[in-house]
């Protein structure tokens, strides 16, 4: 009984590893043939995606660059707002106000992505069209705003935890030297919490790059090279929008799986960079 219990638990652990190995292996195995057939350079750098024409072309540069620009835009808007909100929550807000906002942030994190997409589609898209005088508001700009709101909770809660972990003495020393409270929080506490803040940003990037359903509803979904006020298609939304009609066994479908592989590699690189940054940050501090 004792022995078998141990092996049962061990096999549960092995199952977890198996999942990761299976996912990675399967993506590579299923993703490589199409890239081979199309050619790596044509696939990654080609700017035309026309999978069903008489002369099909499979360039995913529009998707890759849309994903990069969309994520960058969301980070540029979401990170400052998120970090400053975290400063407010961790250092300034007291008692009831703080806990009310914290509950609100938790709630924001729990809203399903299709709901963000729905509100974006009904409220934001017409708004963008109206403000910028466009025929349709379903653009990269709308997607960026939705993504920025969606990454807020992650950034706020991770940064807040990091800010709370900053030793009180750092802040007292700064205050003792004559800095005001707000200067202390922004120029002493924030740099001291940098490894946590880097983690927060990396998690935000991960969420933005991987998001599919919210932005498919607001981005118009046309395979253009990215431009702020044009309809775009991301790596994730390319998979969602075409997977249901690409015939099994066709190059079109295999190419969609290859997009999945590229997305997976993006996430893994991000994951590695985050590890390096966080570990480096910790070493510097100690």
């Amino acid at each position: 009984m004792e022995k078998s219990a141990k092996y049962i638990f061990l096999s549960c652990g092995i199952a977890a590893i198996t999942f990761v190995v299976t996912i990675s292996l399967y993506l590579v195995i299923a993703g490589i043939p199409a890239i081979r057939e199309i050619g790596l350079a044509d696939f990654l750098l080609g700017t035309t995606w026309q999978p069903t024409g008489s002369n099909p072309q499979f360039g995913i540069m529009p998707f890759i660059s849309s994903s990069i620009f969309g994520t960058a835009g969301a980070i540029i808007i979401g990170v400052p707002v998120g970090i400053l909100t975290a400063v407010y929550l961790a250092k300034i807000a007291k008692g009831k106000t703080a806990s009310a906002i914290r509950t609100a942030v938790e709630l924001l994190a729990g809203i399903p992505s299709v709901v963000y997409g729905l509100v974006g589609m009904i409220v934001l898209v017409p708004l963008v069209a109206g403000v910028f005088g466009l025929p349709s508001g379903a653009t990269l700009a709308a997607a960026i705003i939705v993504l920025a709101i969606m990454i807020l909770p992650t950034i706020i809660s991770v940064s807040e935890t990091a800010l709370r972990a900053v030793p009180r003495e750092y802040e007292e020393a700064s205050l003792g030297l004559g800095a005001t409270e707000i200067e202390t929080y922004l120029f002493v506490s924030l740099p001291a919490a940098r490894s946590g803040i880097i983690t927060a940003i990396a998690l935000g990037v991960g969420r933005a790059v991987g998001e599919a359903m919210a932005i498919i509803m607001v981005s118009g979904n046309v395979a253009n090279m990215p431009s702020l006020f044009e309809s775009v298609r991301f790596m994730t939304t390319a998979i969602v929008s075409e997977m249901s009609y690409a015939a099994v066994g066709s190059l079109h479908r295999d190419a969609l799986v290859s997009i999945g592989l590229v997305l997976f590699i993006f996430i893994m690189i991000l994951h590695g960079v985050m590890h390096l940054a966080v570990n480096g940050g910790f070493k510097k501090r100690s």
């Binding site: 991987g210 998001e211 599919a212 997977m243 997976f264 996430i267």
Partner: peptide, 18 residues
């Protein structure tokens, strides 16, 4: 492995699951 699984976007789970 757990950390890696946690960072994979859900659309990739859908793709591989399918």
């Amino acid at each position: 492995a757990m950390e890696t699984l946690a960072s994979i976007p859900s659309i990739i789970f859908g793709l591989v699951g399918m």
